[in-house]
Write a protein that binds this DNA or RNA. Structure first.
Lengths: 386, 386
DNA sequence: GTAGATAACTTCACTTACCGAAAAAAATAA
DNA sequence: TTATTTTTTTCGGTAAGTGAAGTTATCTAC
């Protein structure tokens, strides 16, 4: 019948999935601990771990002196080197690539050269991939897939980037192109989605069922995990926080309407505004620096922007009641006026009862974050297929 | 592993559930049609329908002359009279109760007398329940449960109303009280959730996986269906659209902050504003009537309110990308200035690509809607348990 | 050193919930 | 009456679990 509420036994859907999830969340667990934490019977744990051990996905650690009665436990852990994944974040100017292992550790990184067309991108990526494999000493056959994160509208199921303003792309079959170029399975997703998957798989959201991810770049994107699953929306357009109307009398947005969040807090708009106000800045760190030294224009811009973002996120929190909101700051605001204003605006615009139960986390702009997140998409797809 | 995206074979989770869902969506289906629409094998359909036929949940219709070759189909339908459900909507002044069958048809309705305390409510409900059963000619044993919808904060799992400003309740164990009073299983939920469940079960959302429901009363509430399941949020607080900040310089809200949607578009606030402006109105129909006859204050109030609601819903649409938004208007605006303003504000504040793919539906204030929705909660719980 | 005690793990017989293919049923068409 | 066609059922099989009993590896106490 139509479900009203929860799935059967959250967050697990199968014994195998439960074991992998539990071992992604915990460095190592014994079989009995696995049975305990997942609710799966010891019998099934034996069966599942046996299969995984045979495949080399799991390893047994040499059992320690027990120090107490009874048969000593045998600790199991995911064999991080069992599978490797590539991740690429396609940006306007640069294009970082990483290779990660099964646990999301970065083994090698590389910054790809600029490119013009998707075909050129593929060629560049293929060349870089070869190099990265060589320097990491990993044979191509051990790399189980590549994930690509782009800023734009993506049809993940079809592997197509429908539209990207930043890249000037329209209906580019990225997955297909990449599969051909790198000779490994490829997936593509929006960067906010990628970050959310990355946090769920390898990051701080591993234990969370419901959370949102906000990515601050030239524009602002978001993604939602709901009931332990990435929620894309009815037709894949969920998360368009950048075009929430914040100020109906605000300036014209690229989308044709006025006062979208992007026009006030988006990196692109903020840089334009700073320039228009006669401030010469490279990135947001410079703007924050100016504010720190008492520049009133810089302070005002950052405060207004942070406040607008906070108000929008407050709406998100009250509508969806996530356990946590991750901000991924690719613009380099760091801790400053902007973040303070954002936090304050969130706190001032949500009901008291949300205050204690909603965690707000800012990720610093770490260049490898996006490509690593992209790799986590490939990791998910791989683990889902075994 | 942590799920990234879809469950296995949406929207069905089991053959039995698939059969019930399909027969709630379609008046009648043959076994082969059931197999076709659900993707479940004919063998399993035989098995499942046999069980359900034995229990009396399904009936075979007398097979018609086929008019073509082959074994004629046997149409199956849900036996609506297999189970009955009670539904109560606890309001500030009145308290409508209905009895519905398995398909959500209302067999009997009753408006309960006013009450003061939860204990009194239970006594009144018990008395009314007896009467309603007698006049409907249904033995109590055939009623499988009662659902209670309240306007307020509810812990559905525990069956407790945590707080209701309208009813002046705090931590009232409604489910327990009702179970004792009516001698049938009882459930309680927030009224926005109840309406969402009702639309999903018996209403226009039967075929939708992702939709939201907005309930306009003294205050404004909302609920989300996501991936075919009611989404309550991390700690059950999802849907607080009434306290989205719409105008930071707005009037003080009961929640202690300024410019919440409730203070501009909530029925309570709107009535207060009308009174303050010297307009004497009973309900919103009166206010719309005044606007229709050219009263500028009435028009302004309605337009501002409708616009604020529309802007908030536009945020919801862009964040969650639902397939449909249902408005349940318990205030009686009907088609008028308010709804027009709401629709326009939604259209003006969402990206073009959401325009075509988001359905906006207004439900007229139908007194039986809330109690019927409440009954659908009991129906869900019953169907989920068999 | 050896006999419990104890806890971790494995084995085995069983269940549930399905599926695919073949068989049976019930009609029409020739 | 027989062939044809379509629906439904039966039957054997499988995947993924469970619970209970058995096995293994260690510690403790005498």
């Amino acid at each position: 019948m139509p479900a009203r509420d929860k799935p059967l036994k959250p967050p697990f859907r199968s014994a195998r999935g439960a074991v992998i999830t539990a071992l992604l969340r915990n460095e190592q667990l014994s079989r009995s601990e696995l049975s305990e934490t997942t609710g799966v019977s010891p019998a099934a744990i034996t069966e599942v771990t046996q299969t995984f051990l045979q495949r080399g996905l799991l390893v047994e650690l040499p059992s320690q002196a027990a120090g107490r009665r009874g048969r000593p436990t045998v600790q199991l852990r995911l064999q991080a080197s069992h599978a490797y994944f590539a991740g690429i974040s396609v940006g306007e100017s640069d294009m970082p690539m990483v290779i990660t292992d099964l646990r999301g550790r970065i083994l090698e990184r590389h910054n790809l050269a600029a490119y013009e067309t998707p075909a050129e991108l593929a060629k560049t990526a293929a060349k870089a991939f070869k190099e990265v494999l060589r320097s990491a000493g990993i044979p191509r056959s051990r790399v189980q897939g590549v994930g690509v994160a782009v800023s734009g509208i993506v049809n993940a199921a079809e592997g197509v980037c429908r539209y990207s303003a930043a890249l000037n792309w329209r209906d580019v079959p990225v997955a297909q192109v990449m599969t051909k170029a790198l000779h490994i399975p490829a997936w593509i997703d929006n960067d906010a989605n990628a970050v959310a998957v990355g946090e769920k798989f390898f990051g701080r959201a591993r234990d969370l069922e419901h959370f949102s991810s906000i990515v601050l770049e030239r524009t602002i994107g978001s993604a939602h995990y709901i009931n332990g699953m990435l929620y894309r929306g009815h037709d894949g357009s969920a998360g368009e926080i950048g075009h929430i109307t914040v100020d109906p009398k605000g300036v014209l947005c690229r989308c044709g309407r006025n006062g979208c969040l992007d026009t006030i807090a988006g990196g692109h708009a903020l840089r334009d505004a700073a320039k228009a106000a006669g401030l010469t800045i490279g990135n947001m760190r410079d703007l924050e620096e100016l504010a720190l030294h008492g520049n009133p224009t810089a302070t005002r811009l950052l405060r207004v922007a942070g406040n607008a973002l906070g108000v929008a996120v407050a709406s998100l929190v009250q509508l969806n009641n996530p356990q946590c909101v991750f901000f991924t700051d690719m613009e380099g605001f760091d801790n400053g006026v902007f973040r303070t204003a954002t936090r304050q605006a969130i706190e001032n615009n949500i009901l008291a009862r949300f205050l204690g139960s909603t965690q707000i986390i800012f990720n610093n702009a770490e260049p490898a974050l996006l490509p690593r997140s992209a790799a986590s998409i490939a990791a998910f797809e791989y683990l889902n297929s075994i």
